[in-house]
Each structure stands twice: as structure tokens, then as C-alpha cells.
């Protein structure tokens, strides 16, 4: 038995060493936040960030590989080196900047919105759901409403559908297709709220070289308009562009 474990461990060590040294950049994403990133019918990661990220890697001459990770552990796992970038619709905030570095934004500062099952819910004193560790959750916690947090965006919507929460507060772009297809059972309520400093890629603070490469590619894509084309493709014609 011990032998089995030892030989398995040895195998792992050997497999680790045998791999060639040319660097693969591992791109970490959540895969549950359309249109930014989601798992498509084929079981592959798809969405705006998949297409955008692949283009960045091509321009920067990098080999990239996509990795799924739960949202609530997405920063710790970047820092401990399980992957090299976070590209998961993550807004640039001062609080996150203390732990990781960000590229320039590739999606302009986003508007967040409330969605409820009926008009006239109390957004300031009611129960509002939001995803754990998001800027939206931080905003609700300070707004006076009672915050209920969920690990996935899906659950925040389900909470409104089954009456557990009065409203859900999330990125407008995530909510829009859901509201459109709800057949009138869900609707936008209240004012939209601009939050965060735009969406950027997160990297380890020690990874300055890689950050520079991605930053340069993003600048290029902003300049030649290809980023705007992608934004329009995934977020609709009237989305904010650069």
C-alpha cells in the first residue's frame, strides 16, 4: 500500500519534471457568468473573455490554456500559482489591487442593476441577493438593504424567483439576457448604479513581465477597433465602447 502511494507520488514528480519548459499561460475564469464567460454546449469555455483572451494570447505570442475555478477562491488560487491570470469579468478595485495587479480595463466601468419579480420592491430596506466577494455585494452591504450572498450568479437569480430575496443586484450585462427571456416574470427596477473601475485582467503582483505583454496587446486591440467589435458582438450594439 505504501509502495503504491510512493510510486504514485514518484510518478507525479516525474511527470512534472518531464514536461517541456516553454511557458504556457494558464487563464483562470469562472465559466458561469455569460456573456463574459460560460461553458457552452460542447463543454468548452466560451464568451466574450474567451474570444478576447485568445486574441490577446495570439498577439502577445503566448500559448494559453483555460482553467475553470470557483469565484470565491479565484484570487487565492491565482496568488498561490494555480494559474497565471484571472480573466473573469473582475472589476478593478482598490481593495483587490492590494492583493493582485490589474491590466488596463478591457471593459469600461460597468453599470450594475437591480432585478426583481415585481415593481415597487424596497431596494433600500428589503432583502437583496448578490454574488459573494463582488463589488455588488460590497455595495449592497453598505446600502442599508439586507444582503444575502450566494457562491454563483445563478443562485442569486434563483433566490429572487423563489422569493427568498426581493431583488438581485448584479452587472447589467449579465442580467439583461435573463430578464429578456424571463417572459415578464423578472424586470429591472430602480436606478442603475455605475460601480468599479472597469473590468481588467488580474495577475500576480510579481508577474510584471506578463502584465506588460497583456497590457500592450490590449492597447493594440483598443487602437485598431477590434476590441470594440468584440464588445458589440457579445454585449449588443448599444454597449459602451472605447
Amino acid at each position: 500500500m505504501k509502495k503504491l502511494i510512493l510510486s504514485a507520488a514518484a510518478l507525479v514528480l516525474a511527470a512534472g519534471m518531464a514536461v517541456a519548459q516553454d511557458k504556457t499561460v494558464r487563464m483562470g475564469t469562472e465559466g458561469a457568468y455569460p456573456p463574459y464567460n460560460f461553458v457552452n454546449d460542447k463543454g468548452e469555455i466560451d464568451g466574450f473573455e474567451r474570444e478576447f483572451g485568445d486574441e490577446l494570447c495570439k498577439r502577445a505570442g503566448l500559448t494559453c490554456e483555460w482553467v475553470k475555478n470557483d469565484w470565491d477562491s479565484i484570487i487565492p488560487n491565482l496568488v498561490s500559482g494555480n494559474y497565471d491570470t484571472i480573466i473573469a469579468g473582475m472589476s478593478i478595485t482598490d481593495e483587490r489591487k492590494k492583493v493582485i495587479s490589474f491590466t488596463q480595463d478591457y471593459y469600461p466601468p460597468t453599470e450594475s442593476a437591480y432585478v426583481a419579480a415585481s415593481e415597487g420592491v424596497d431596494l433600500k430596506g428589503g432583502i437583496v441577493s448578490a454574488q459573494t466577494a463582488t463589488i455588488q455585494a460590497g455595495f449592497i452591504a453598505e446600502s442599508g438593504a439586507t444582503l444575502v450572498e450566494f457562491a454563483t450568479p445563478e443562485e442569486t437569480i434563483a433566490a429572487v424567483r423563489n422569493g427568498e430575496a426581493d431583488a438581485v443586484f448584479a452587472d447589467y450585462d449579465y442580467l439583461a439576457p435573463i430578464v429578456a427571456e424571463s417572459g415578464g416574470s423578472l424586470m429591472f427596477v430602480g436606478e442603475r448604479v455605475p460601480l468599479g473601475g472597469g473590468v481588467g485582467m488580474g495577475l500576480r503582483q510579481s508577474d510584471g513581465e506578463l502584465l506588460g505583454k497583456f497590457d500592450k496587446a490590449i492597447t493594440e486591440m483598443k487602437a485598431d477597433g477590434s476590441l470594440n467589435t468584440l464588445l458589440k458582438k457579445w454585449f449588443g450594439e448599444e454597449t459602451v465602447t472605447y
Partner: peptide, 20 residues
């Protein structure tokens, strides 16, 4: 909070394919 070993000591290596 970070546990940072040298890149050669990462398990699995950062360069390994996803299945590893």
C-alpha cells in the same frame, strides 16, 4: 498569505497540461 515556491517546484508545473 502567499505560499510561493520556485517555479520548478510547483506541483504540477505551471507548464503542465490541464489533465495533469
Amino acid at each position: 498569505n502567499d505560499f510561493l515556491v520556485c517555479p520548478q517546484a510547483k506541483l504540477p508545473l505551471g507548464t503542465s497540461p490541464e489533465w495533469v
